[in-house]
Computed example of a mutant assay.
Amino acid sequence: MEIIQMSPLDAAEHIAAFIAQTIKTYETEQPGQKPFNVFPGFLPEWKSRKEQQDNCPAIAVHPSQVIDNENESHSVISVLVCTYDDDMKHGHSSLYQILEYLRAALLTEKRVGQKFYVMEDVKTVIPAEQPFPRWWGQIDINVSLPQPMCDYSTIWGDEP
């Protein structure tokens, strides 16, 4: 019997693969768009402006929360999008476009990796403080997970 991985990290890796594939369509729709770097995990630390410019746009995908309650378990998968633009007045616009493109793709697809379901409560955040000339925002996606079940017979014994 094959064990199916359905951990939060597995969900993040599947979402990163989905985004890497999906963002290729965005790149072809935008003339002159640099290819995206998609990282399962976190963004590398780029010290110089040259490193930032060379590596952006970039997307990092990682699990940021796991939430268990009485009826369900889910993980919050954070999608961090980082762009680079020297234009102080309009540089943020490409960030908004990419975030919206990804949000719509995730909500339209719903099932990622044939085993993770994207729940309706998706949250996009664009902080007011931006590390110019980089621009960043984050999409938090709730993904359903299998709910761990307690075997009460190990606690109370086999008898009711």
Rank of each mutant, 00 (worst) to 15 (best):
P127C: 13
L145T: 07
T28F: 00
T25F: 13
I77H: 02
P148S: 09
F132H: 11
E100P: 02
N55S: 11
I126R: 06
C56V: 04
Q21V: 03
V125M: 08
E27W: 00
Q65T: 06
M6Y: 02
E129C: 13
Q65P: 03
V61F: 06
F18L: 03
H62D: 08
V76N: 02
H74R: 09
P57Y: 08
S78C: 08
H90M: 08
I15F: 00
V118N: 15
K115G: 05
Q30Y: 01
D87S: 05
P8K: 00
R103Q: 14
K24L: 15
Q65N: 10
I19M: 10
H92R: 11
F132Y: 15
A17I: 00
P127D: 04
Y84E: 04
W46K: 11
D140N: 11
D87Y: 03
N37L: 13
D151G: 06
F42S: 15
S48W: 09
Y26K: 11
Q5H: 07
I19A: 04
Y152N: 06
M149A: 10
E27Q: 12
A17Y: 00
A16L: 03
R49F: 09
M149Q: 14
E51N: 05
K34L: 14
H74M: 09
I126K: 13
L80D: 12
N55W: 12
P160S: 03
H62R: 15
A58L: 00
I98K: 07
P8V: 07
E13S: 10
E120C: 09
T28K: 12
H92N: 14
I67C: 02
K47D: 12
L145A: 09
Q53T: 10
H14I: 00
F18G: 03
S48T: 15
I141K: 05
G32W: 00
R134A: 02
Q138L: 14
A128P: 02
E29Y: 03
P131Q: 13
K50C: 01
V125Q: 14
V125D: 10
